[in-house]
Nucleic acid binder design. Structure first.
Lengths: 334, 334
DNA sequence: CTGAAAGCGCTTACAG
DNA sequence: CTGAAAGCGCTTACAG
């Protein structure tokens, strides 16, 4: 028999209204009355039922988070950032993934319709952007954490990073260590981040007087296999390259392997740079130079933006950008 | 102005009770009435408010999950397993971490007291076992996902794996490939899993007539650095070893590095085996032979056990054990 | 400074 | 087969 506000009121000989007031610190109330009520609350160990408070207030103090999958290497960082911020503000995080495809989305949609949470953080599962936009237009407060897509002309609040300048930094670093003939292994071309990373990287080389020939930019898909294949094919085709820039770390791991397998050394013969800076990057052999994506900070920023909106701050209409930073390790420097 | 059950009732010219009945499929009701109500529900796009249903029913259809941190290499797997099962049963997953220490636990405790969820899945954050036990005794339905601790004599429902026989399998494999002088780098000795892994491994070697000397079992802490240090010190001390068994993969990565740094080859001179089989294990150079912990299956099993309990199945009083399996890769086989 | 009453949006005996 | 009413446990005008 859980105790309720009525029990507290009876024991303290006041109305439920008064108990509610001391609970929420609203309205003027006699200090001695308040003290008495507080004593009873402590004595009974009373805690208001979240379910009742939620219904009465019309909110849940819960934020939903939709992500494609939980097993991606950097997903834990984003989640941890979001959870830390939400938790500190006494919000809960209700987690949704798209792992089971359409059925997952159906369940998610049901929870949205039932108003199980007050707002949404989302890393867009591929192919769900239209649906997400619909929810946004219907008035669901949300913040997108955008690691891949370029949402041209879209006004959904977004937290992103600097794909273009991160890639440019990687290019400058390679130029500095004297590499002029890089191979680039990209992500899928449908992603905005792929376009930006390619552009940022190639434009720096072009400006430096070392334009990258089209055959040196090979299409990948963010997998380790893409790194292996990209390097192998370049070698088989007789291409001359002294560096590889991969659009993510997993791909870079594959590139390193293919380079070593071919009898070349990393970084002496070929320097390798990744993108993401997943936890394993520094543990890899050799440790991987890479563009650090601030995933945790992005998760934090997204959560903070959403909470600020609940408190009345208007959602920003331009993306919040947290800079990516280049991290030098042994895969580019002996 | 969200539409409510009253709107549906009015439009269908029935009582809220009747609408509730067609919603929940309870009680006998005229098929034509039901059809009419369903039509109105569709027409209005009505979905019952989760908040109101929760209060009326006294449950939330939400399961809490408490984990130490979201950034551990295998955490995503456990979470994904749990989420997939919960989602399929239309349950939500409310995520809690212990990342901010005592403050985190305070927030968590507040949510427990407020009954924000119906049951709990927990990977015990170090030092919180007494608190968890208290919650269990107070009647909070829970299932422990036990990757480290041995809860001797404890009756909290648990899902675990076979640490002892997994380590024994690793030992047998090393014997099969002719290694008789392994080095063991353990986890912290306060963990039950450390004790079991050490015991499973050393007893197989002892039975095979190759007892492992005490100096060959070095205390580690599950970090990469422990692997590096353990191997370096063994080499410095002039120990003769032809294999290393590490109590987790991260540590094994470090061991591999230290071995290579010393001019030795893996696996020709020293074979290396890890434990966990984190996603990177197969991507490592060389790919790591390791004991596979079925983290995703453990997450699934824990969730299923909890849901079954909600449906009336008594919680099992002995641990659910999902076997660990040995996975051979290049770090033990050239 | 305090309380009675209505309301949040459902579910569920109870009665017919 | 169907509905009026009470109840879930709070919050919040409104009145005093």
């Amino acid at each position: 028999m859980p105790i309720t506000i009525a029990d507290v009121a009876a024991r303290a000989k006041v109305s439920k209204t008064t108990v509610s007031r001391v609970l929420n610190g609203k309205g003027e109330l006699d200090e001695s009355t308040a003290a008495r009520v507080r004593a009873v609350i402590d004595e009974l160990g009373y805690v208001p039922s979240a379910r009742a408070v939620n219904l009465a207030r019309g909110r849940t103090r819960v934020v939903g988070m939709l992500v494609p999958s939980l097993t991606w290497p950097w997903m834990g960082e984003v989640l941890q950032g979001a959870v830390d911020v939400l938790e500190a503000e006494e919000y809960g995080l209700l987690l949704f993934t798209c792992n089971r495809g359409d059925d997952s989305m159906r369940q998610f949609a049901a929870q949205v319709a039932a108003k199980s949470f007050d707002g949404l953080l989302v890393i867009e599962p591929e192919g769900t952007l239209d649906y997400i936009k619909t929810l946004h237009h219907r008035g669901l407060p949300m913040v997108l954490i955008d690691d891949r897509d370029q949402l041209s002309g879209e006004q959904i609040p977004t937290v992103g990073t600097t794909n273009h300048s991160g890639a440019a930094d990687a290019a400058r670093h390679l130029l500095e260590i004297g590499r002029h003939k890089p191979l680039v292994i990209t992500g899928p071309s449908r992603f905005g981040c792929t376009v930006q990373r390619t552009d940022g990287f190639t434009s720096v080389f072009a400006e430096a007087g070392h334009p990258i020939p089209a055959e040196h930019v090979v299409l990948g898909d963010f997998t380790r296999a893409a790194g292996v294949e990209g390097v192998r094919e370049a070698i088989a085709a007789g291409r001359d390259f002294d560096a590889v820039f991969c659009h993510n770390d997993l791909c870079a791991f594959g590139a390193v392997q293919a380079i070593l397998d071919s009898g070349r050394r990393v970084p002496e013969d070929v320097a390798v740079v990744g993108f993401d800076d997943i936890p394993m990057a520094g543990h890899h052999q050799p440790p991987l130079s890479t563009v650090h994506q601030p995933m945790r900070e992005m998760g934090e920023a997204a959560a903070r933006t959403l909470l600020a909106h609940f408190d009345g701050t208007p959602l920003p209409n331009r993306p919040t950008v947290i800079p990516a930073t280049f991290t030098v390790r042994a895969s580019t420097q002996a």
